[in-house]
Structures are given as structure tokens and as C-alpha cells.
Amino acid sequence: MDLLNFINSKVTLTAQECAEVEQKFQPASYTKGALLITPNNYSSKIFFIQKGLVRTFYYKDEKDITQFFFDEGTFTAPLNSIFHQISEPYGWQALEDTTVRTINYEELDPMLTRIPALQKMFFHVAIDVLTLFSIKLESLQFQTAEQRYHTMIEMYPKILLRAPLGQIASYLGITQQTLSVIRARR
């Protein structure tokens, strides 16, 4: 999904505001497997995913754990680096060839003041992302592994075709063997 189409589906920008967004958000492409952000690093980049699939992940006891998936038409950003000036424990990895639009937060922040509609759009994006993280947290706390799997399939119906099963299993907080058992019951 194109960045301006996404923004204009949420709020209305003037032609001049669209031109500024188009100029400030730079295009970038990543091949499958490439890191957008390395774990335990600093970044102030905000990403809008136009095409492809990105996962955030971290390492625990030398294991690679998937935290979240972001697909077309979504924003993602290293919040620890941007808002708390601490290294970001998460890495961002392209799971497919991925095209993004990116802007440094230092450039975005003054735009949000100048363009109130853009600020409103980012407020709604933040609420949407918080809702998704809340759903994941609730599923980890209150659902069985099988229920978590079905919740994920409802939210991301094509994820099984796009992400490796090991990464899906770690996202669900289960082993790949448990995921295979659950999938076999369908």
C-alpha cells in the first residue's frame, strides 16, 4: 500500500502537505532476510511498510524469539531508541523482499506540529498498534496454545504462507513441535 494512499484514507492532507510527506519519507528496499534494524542498537527511523513482511525479534538465552509481524500498510518504529534514548533490544528483519518509506523521528516531529492532520493520523496508528499488542498480551496470558494459534490466523490469515513456522511458533510462545500438532488437528 502506498504511503500517501494510506494517510489519505485516514485523514485529508492538502496538496502541499502531501508533497512534504512525499519528500520527507524516503523509499528503501530490503531483500528477504535483511535487517532493517540490528538488535541492541540505536535507531530513530520510523518505517511504513508498503510491500512485504517484517518481523521484530529479540534473543533470549541465545534463542531467536519473534515479537511481532508487520505487513503492508503498517508503521513500526524502535520506541526505546526514539523516546527513551536507550538501545533497542529488538531487531527488525524483512521476511520477504520489502519496500518501505522511512523518516527519522527528528524530521517527523516538527512535521506533526505543522500538519495537525498528520498528527491525528499517527495518534490513530498508535492506538491501532497498542490494540494489537494488547490482544497479543491477552492471548499469551489467557489463551491456550491452540487458541493463540486461531487468534493469530484470524488476525493474519496469510501468515502461514509468508513466515517460517519456527518464527510463528516463537511468536505464539510455543515450540515448533506444538505448532505442528495444533496444525495437524485442523
Rank of each mutant, 00 (worst) to 15 (best):
A19S: 01
Y90M: 14
K24W: 02
A117C: 12
E154C: 03
F70A: 07
P78N: 02
S180M: 00
G173L: 00
W92T: 03
N104M: 10
L3Q: 07
I103H: 05
L165K: 15
A15M: 03
L179F: 05
R185G: 08
N41S: 13
F68T: 10
Q143H: 07
Y30G: 01
L79C: 11
Q50M: 00
E138T: 12
K158Q: 11
E154I: 04
F142P: 07
K63N: 02
H84L: 07
V54M: 01
Q119Y: 04
T38W: 06
S87D: 13
G91M: 15
K120E: 15
K45Y: 06
A77Q: 11
Q176W: 04
S180Y: 01
Q176A: 03
K120L: 02
Q177F: 08
A163P: 07
L36C: 02
T56S: 09
F25V: 05
N8A: 00
S81E: 12
K10A: 14
E146C: 10
S9R: 06
T98I: 10
S139D: 02
K32N: 04
I174M: 03
I65W: 00
F75P: 06
S170I: 09
S81Y: 11
T131P: 06
D2F: 03
M155P: 05
S43W: 00
E106I: 05
Y90D: 14
Q26D: 09
F133L: 14
Q23P: 04
K120G: 07
P116T: 08
I182L: 02
I127M: 02
T175V: 11
L179T: 00
